[in-house]
């Protein structure tokens, strides 16, 4: 499953790095605690979170995430977008709650 098809199916808003969406998504991780995400997420995951501040970018870059999905109407802060563009980490957003986003992505990836 590529990130671009995930974006289309869930109708996510692309906030940056449009050109980086054809990567493969290996799975997902949902969490708002950075130490948890650092320890337990994997390379190629999409990270589903409500954290929108600039520190999420370093975590995603370190873990080589495919992208970050901000849920429940969260939008990235200005510094977050600047850092994400530099790091080449796509930031996507949606009004959907994390539970639904995770459930739908799980179904899509399982196939």
């Amino acid at each position: 499953m590529t990130l671009i098809s995930l974006v289309k199916t869930l109708n996510l808003t692309v906030r940056c790095c449009k050109e980086k969406l054809d990567c493969n998504v290996t799975g997902g991780y949902i969490g708002d605690l950075l130490s948890d995400v650092i320890a337990n997420s994997d390379k190629g995951n999409v990270w589903i979170t409500r954290q929108s501040h600039q520190n999420i970018v370093a975590v995603a870059e370190l873990k080589e995430h495919a992208g970050i999905i901000l849920v429940r109407g969260r939008e990235p802060e200005e510094e977050t977008l600047e850092k994400a563009v530099k790091a080449g980490i796509p930031i996507l957003s949606t009004a959907l709650p994390g539970f639904e986003v995770a459930g739908r992505i799980y179904e899509l990836i399982k196939r």
Partner: peptide, 8 residues
């Protein structure tokens, strides 16, 4: 900010 889970 999501730090302070006591996991570090």
């Amino acid at each position: 900010m999501g730090f302070g889970a006591g996991m570090g």
